[in-house]
Computed example of a mutant assay.
Amino acid sequence: MKKILSVNSAAATTDMALLVARVGIGAIMLTHGIPKMMMLFSGAPVQFPPVMGLTPELSLGLAIFAEVLCSIFLMAGFVTRLAVLPLIITMLVAALVFHGADPFAKKELSLQFLLAYVVLLLAGSGKYSVDYLLQGNRPESVTPDKK
């Protein structure tokens, strides 16, 4: 019972939680981004609302950049803190511009994504990420034991 209620987190479980959060939220966002990408490359006229004076094509392109490319980077843990910035901006635009006049229920999904991205911005990618490897680190499970 004490272990369940413990607030002390071991680094390994925190790193695993960050991995699960990155991969999970990135994969879910891909389900929103890939249909937008298909819409852009379908050859049909773009049916996407313009944002803040941008053309519909540019608005759609920026959404695809965030929702597809940045989600893939997020899942890999590659430039994680930079990758979540376009995602944060996209979710702010979705909640405050697209659904600004809508009831909270319409904004809720965007706000949930936004919350997850802010947590990942603050926490970083963790040990199970490309970022960690690029820093010249190796996961402890791969490092040979020193005696």
Rank of each mutant, 00 (worst) to 15 (best):
L19S: 05
L19I: 10
L19F: 13
A21Y: 06
A21H: 12
R22I: 09
R22Q: 09
R22D: 05
V23P: 11
V23Y: 12
V23M: 04
G24R: 09
G24K: 08
G24D: 11
I25M: 10
I25G: 00
G26M: 07
A27H: 07
A27T: 14
I28A: 07
I28K: 00
I28C: 06
M29S: 00
M29F: 12
M29A: 10
M29Q: 07
M29C: 07
M29R: 02
L30D: 11
L30R: 03
T31I: 09
T31R: 13
T31Y: 03
H32C: 01
H32W: 13
H32V: 12
H32Y: 10
G33Y: 04
G33N: 00
G33Q: 03
G33M: 03
I34T: 03
I34F: 07
I34Y: 01
P35E: 08
K36M: 08
M37R: 14
M37V: 13
M38S: 15
M38C: 09
M38R: 11
M38A: 14
M39D: 08
M39E: 05
M39G: 03
M39H: 13
M39T: 02
L40V: 00
F41I: 11
F41V: 06
F41L: 13
S42A: 03
S42G: 13
S42T: 11
S42E: 10
S42M: 03
G43D: 10
A44K: 14
P45K: 12
P45Q: 09
P45A: 15
V46T: 13
V46S: 04
Q47W: 14
Q47D: 15
F48M: 12
F48W: 15
F48K: 04
F48G: 14
P49E: 15
P49M: 15
P49L: 15
P49Q: 15
P50F: 04
V51N: 02
V51K: 08
V51E: 10
M52F: 06
M52P: 06
G53T: 10
G53I: 05
L54A: 11
T55K: 08
T55F: 02
T55I: 01
T55H: 08
P56W: 06
P56S: 08
P56V: 02
E57Q: 15
E57I: 11
E57M: 05
E57R: 08
E57G: 11
S59V: 10
S59R: 05
S59P: 03
L60I: 04
L60N: 00
G61D: 06
L62F: 11
L62M: 12
A63L: 02
A63M: 00
A63D: 11
I64T: 04
F65T: 04
A66Q: 01
E67R: 01
E67Q: 12
E67H: 01
E67L: 12
V68A: 09
V68W: 02
V68M: 07
L69G: 15
L69S: 11
L69Q: 04
C70F: 14
S71Y: 01
S71W: 04
S71P: 10
I72G: 03
I72V: 15
I72Q: 07
F73H: 13
F73C: 14
F73T: 06
F73Q: 14
L74H: 06
L74E: 04
L74G: 00
L74K: 03
M75Q: 03
M75V: 07
M75I: 11
M75T: 01
A76P: 00
A76T: 10
A76E: 05
G77H: 00
G77P: 04
G77V: 03
F78K: 05
F78P: 01
F78S: 10
F78R: 00
V79T: 12
V79K: 13
